[in-house]
């Protein structure tokens, strides 16, 4: 039982990291119906910048997180501006944008693997603080886990505030609901999309730093699997829905950790995607999403 509770806490830590990534996927999908394949790579850049921040430049880790979020916000906006907006302006087919997103993803992975950028190899992350273990009765919980969970909760609360209490958030919701109507109401749609990328990328950056602290190994290709799984979580929860992304990510983290702990580690990824396919088939709109009938 004690072991089970500890596994659940491990799963919570993983799920919360996925949640931060999933939020970016779901917000971008909600607003321009694009699966932003490059999002997992923004997460990777976030991990590297955070690592440089506290391990190389000697910044305190909370500052390193903020710097990483700022850098990735700019990266996210640049990706949108340079790669996706030209296609949107042309009215290109969805698939062209999707493939471009895949191209951007590959570009970031290969570019950062170059020796004069991050280099192709794994780096081991030295944590900027000593890990303490607390005991709640028989259950032990580490300071890293507490850190991850707390930071994620703070960021999600911040996002909630932006989306529901600020003008930008209102504009984002309007554009996601009906882009053309929003444009007619005088909303600068391109700018709103740009902000969405900035916010989503900043969250992914924070996820990257937390991931590097929790699972201290980083590489240019580290974003692929967490990216795919976070996207799966967003679909699981109902893509376009922020609470859905959180719920989906938490479930995904649990499913992955508990299968690894009690069933098998070899087939962990297969099981994650098996769940995805089942969810798509049984409840295509996700757990908290809503689907309307197609108009004929």
């Amino acid at each position: 039982m004690v072991q089970f509770i500890e596994q659940v806490i491990n799963g919570l830590q993983l799920g919360f990291v996925y949640a931060l990534i999933a939020l970016g996927y779901t917000m971008v999908y909600g607003i321009i119906r694009l699966i932003n394949f490059a999002h997992g790579d923004v997460f990777m850049i976030g991990a590297f910048v955070g690592y440089f921040g506290f391990a190389v430049w000697g910044l305190p880790w909370p500052v390193a997180i903020l710097v990483s979020m700022a850098v990735c916000a700019v990266v996210g906006m640049a990706i949108e501006r340079l790669a996706y907006r030209p296609l949107r302006a042309k009215g290109a087919p969805n698939i062209a944008t999707l493939i471009t997103a895949i191209g951007v993803s590959l570009f970031i992975e290969y570019f950062t693997s170059l020796k004069f950028v991050f280099g192709p190899n794994y780096r081991v992350v030295a944590r900027p603080f000593a890990v303490q273990v607390f005991h709640l009765g028989p259950v032990s919980i580490s300071s890293v886990q507490i850190l991850v969970i707390t930071v994620v909760l703070v960021l999600v609360a911040g996002l909630q505030y932006i989306v529901y209490r600020t003008k930008v958030g209102k504009a984002m919701r309007a554009v996601s609901h009906d882009r053309d109507a929003a444009r007619l109401m005088g909303i600068d749609v391109d700018r709103v999309i740009s902000y969405t990328f900035a916010i989503g990328s900043a969250l992914a950056a924070a996820a990257g730093v937390l991931f590097a602290l929790a699972y201290p190994q980083i590489s240019p290709f580290m974003g692929i699997m967490p990216g795919l799984k976070a996207f799966t979580a967003a679909v699981l929860g109902g893509i376009g829905s922020i609470p859905g992304a959180l719920l989906g990510a938490v479930l995904m983290g649990q499913a992955e950790t508990l299968t690894a702990a009690y069933i098998t580690t070899d087939f962990r990824d297969a099981i994650a995607f098996g769940i995805l396919i089942l969810v798509l088939l049984l409840r295509p709109a996700g757990l908290l999403g809503k689907a309307g009938p197609e108009k004929v």
Binding site: L87, A96, L106, F107, S113, K115
Partner: peptide, 20 residues
Amino acid sequence: DLRGVVYALVLIVLMIARPQ
């Protein structure tokens, strides 16, 4: 090492230039 970078860039430029 640049091969992957060039591949990705070619892909992005082609898609933006000729999405069809």
